[in-house]
């Protein structure tokens, strides 16, 4: 089972939000809080029968589920990426000497707002493909620090469509910044 890879840097270090808004923009969520877990009652059946038919105890066999319509979010165009440089074309002069072009994502505060992503110039790190990292800036130019499920590490950026350009044996897989993949 492969997994989505998550960029580290702008993402890591965000403190836990104050989780009060459990519904916004019409998107309904059932939330549990610590110490308020359900009791597992399995519905509101109050039958006193001890010889109920198949599928009792709050559910019926087949066709037991109600109709439900997710209200979703209103249509909205994504914000323009904030591109300061070309992350697929390092050393093209977009960034000062010694800097690399890195990608970022900024998560929104509200459920139906959209994330902001783009690129920025920053002093280049030295970590290479597969090396451990603890945040943005530790990886060499052209790489990104991501949470993978098998260690947080630097991976080479790659395009998700067309030729990936990944080293032999690695594949280009999605990270959570639109338009960018990483070699794994």
């Amino acid at each position: 089972m492969r997994r989505l890879f998550l960029i580290l840097g702008f993402a890591l270090g965000l403190n836990a939000a104050v989780f009060t808004a459990v519904s916004g923009c019409g998107n309904t969520v059932i939330e549990i809080k610590p110490g308020e877990g359900g009791g597992g009652a399995g519905g509101n059946n109050t039958s006193s029968s001890s010889t109920g038919a198949a599928g009792d105890a709050g559910i019926d066999a087949k066709d037991a589920l109600p109709d439900y319509s997710d209200p979703g979010c209103p249509d909205a165009s994504p914000p323009e990426p904030q591109e300061e440089c070309d992350a697929f074309n390092q050393g093209n002069g977009d960034c000062p000497p010694g800097d690399g072009c890195y990608i970022f994502v900024q998560y929104p505060d509200e459920p139906c707002e959209q994330e902001l992503y783009g690129t920025y110039c920053s002093p280049a790190g030295s970590q290479g493909q597969g090396d451990a990292c603890g945040g943005a800036g530790q990886c060499a130019a052209g790489l990104v620090c991501v949470i993978t499920g098998f260690g947080t590490q630097c991976v080479q950026l790659c395009p998700l469509s067309g030729e990936s350009g990944c080293p032999d044996g690695l594949t280009c897989e999605a990270i959570d910044v639109e338009g960018y993949g990483g070699c794994f």
Binding site: F19, T28, I30, E31, I32, L65, P66, D67, D70
Partner: peptide, 9 residues
């Protein structure tokens, strides 16, 4: 069939 159930906070 049901609203999303958030398991972590």
């Amino acid at each position: 069939a049901i609203p999303d159930v958030r398991l972590t906070s």
